[in-house]
Nucleic acid binder design. Structure first.
Lengths: 334, 334
DNA sequence: GTGAAAGCGCTAACAA
DNA sequence: TTGTTAGCGCTTTCAC
């Protein structure tokens, strides 16, 4: 990499002259500016990012801490973040907490050494289970803003972007009731995290409001054999006529399992799942899905963080944005 | 963030004393070291990363350019990279090229301003189609090493980590032939990229070697309706008794489509797909899959890059590592 | 119109 | 044992 120093030497001018010329300062003579720019072009000069960061005490970099990159939703949010960040000239450093509190703490610590201007994160499962939030508060106190998305810690004062999980399952369940379904089962393998609980509550509310339907919940643990668990449940509960799944896999698996038992979808049984478009391609008929607009969530989180970074000093109230889900009716419901 | 300066002031010693004390220099007196360390602890002092980067001309950061984060395989590789990088004290800056040559160039340019010590990347589709490699060569000439994985540019001299794509489909096809299948179809929606072509060649070789089977290839374009295309093909070709899919979706969709036509899997038709464990859960029976060991690929790429970064000066030959796939037999084959 | 110098935070050679 | 100084690459104030 060429430096100002080298350009200055070759041009027989001072470093500051070169710097000013490249920054279009009025102070510098026209022809000097021209000479400097030509040489800079020739050598493909780019201001050293590290030096600028040190000088400005701003890295133009965002730390993103994701619990699990193999989760389609989270990957999609990351995509949204990256795109929005790039648009504003920010880079993202990605850490994967792997749902571990320890790794989450470490990543936060490690990047809080001047590597980033702020954080976007979704809380790790372990942190949520243990209700551990001190590390977030410490980071914020250090002057590094945090924006949380999806799985947020309500006790932490910071900007947040969330999904209307409660309403999503509430409405989806109601639509199943309106179809005339009598035995609607809620299936989830995310019972321990905040959003999973919200989704269950939305389902419960719709069921209770109706009054004539018994709530039925099938909880699947991480270590369970997903397919087997659902199969067993179907065998024991022949009268099930609707499934609402809280996560992306359970919906697909439930639908395929129903088919394998000879049930007609959606004639005999309806299935709704939280999933993305390509997941809904993994079933035949295509799965009716609750879309979370992950990219929008990512973009909004990035926008919030960048605004806050650029407004340091100005004490602004923390904001919580809600990105509404939409129910996309495909052919696994009536 | 506390700085050495502030610590020095509060302790009434010089900055360098503080620095040396914290770095366990022999020069500094025992009790001074103790005093310094205590205060540093109290203020949670962390050396400023940016200053260190500037000083050492090393950022301990790797630039990762991924064509598409929603691709499970690529996401998994990213996971592997992150883990290995973290182990060695490196951070990763992630850029998503979105299969676009322009974005790939930009990312490379942007990060080559001192932001990273080197790159790990998989070539964007557009770059492969246009056989554009100049931007890679330029970056390497600038002194920034590149490690390519999966989709690599053979004309570029750099370390590479690839999959034995050819052998994978060759062997998988042979295993279908051994099952006694007579009408084996190769389905792919990645015809334009290097790995897609290699996989097709592997299939072709196995078919041609056999002699008595006609090769049959179904190519799906990005914009096609994936399900519809496969359905139509099945309708026209009733005698198909085996499918080998080059990508992760096609296998799942083909299997579910076969079932929907009343075919028994694997009795009437066998299906093999490139896919991960959780994808194979999306079918019933579970899909027999070619596993690519994405995490291993990521880890190896990171290892190669870090070694090269730390050995600058030592001219070493470029290496190409091949990570062998494995055929995991589930219940969609005999 | 151009240059010298300070400073961002850190390390390390050298001086005391 | 401790301190001074220079320098990493850059911007910017101030002096010429």
């Amino acid at each position: 990499m060429v430096t100002l120093k080298q350009l200055a030497k070759e041009l027989n001018v001072s470093i500051s002259t070169v710097s000013k010329a490249l920054n279009n300062s009025e102070e510098i003579g026209e022809d000097t500016v021209k000479r400097v720019k030509e040489l800079a072009e020739l050598y493909n000069y780019k201001p050293n990012k590290v030096a600028l960061s040190l000088k400005n005490n701003k890295t133009k970099t965002i730390g993103v801490i994701i619990p699990n990159i193999l989760n389609r939703f989270l990957a999609k949010v990351l995509f949204g973040i990256e795109r929005e960040a790039t648009k504003h000239g920010y880079n993202i450093i990605t850490c994967i907490s792997n749902e571990s509190l320890e790794k989450e703490k470490e990543s936060l610590q490690l990047l809080a050494n001047g590597s980033v201007d702020g954080f976007i994160l979704s809380v790790a499962e372990e942190s949520q289970v243990n209700n551990e939030v001190e590390h977030f508060k410490r980071t914020i106190k250090q002057g590094l803003p945090i924006v949380m998305f999806d799985r947020v810690a309500h006790d932490v004062m910071c900007d947040k972007v969330i999904v209307d999980d409660f309403d999503a399952t509430y409405n989806a369940t109601k639509s199943l009731i309106e179809e005339g379904r009598k035995h609607i089962v809620f299936v989830s393998n995310i019972n321990d995290i905040s959003v999973g609980k919200l989704r269950e509550r939305g389902y419960n509310k719709a069921i209770l409001e109706n009054g004539s339907i018994e709530p039925a919940v099938l909880k699947i643990k991480k270590k369970d054999d997903h397919q087997k668990k659902i199969k067993t449940f179907f065998k024991k509960n022949k009268s099930v006529d609707a499934i609402i799944a809280a996560d992306s896999s359970s919906g697909v698996i439930a639908l395929n399992t129903a088919l394998s038992f000879g049930l007609k979808v959606p004639k005999d049984i309806s299935v709704i799942g939280f999933a993305s478009k390509s997941d809904s391609n993994h079933t035949l008929p295509k799965l009716t899905t609750i879309r979370q607009h992950a990219k929008v969530i990512g973009a909004q989180a990035a926008e919030l963080l960048i605004k806050r970074i650029q407004n340091t000093g100005v004490e602004e109230d923390v904001k919580t944005k809600i990105v509404k889900t939409s129910l996309v009716k495909n052919n696994s419901t009536l």
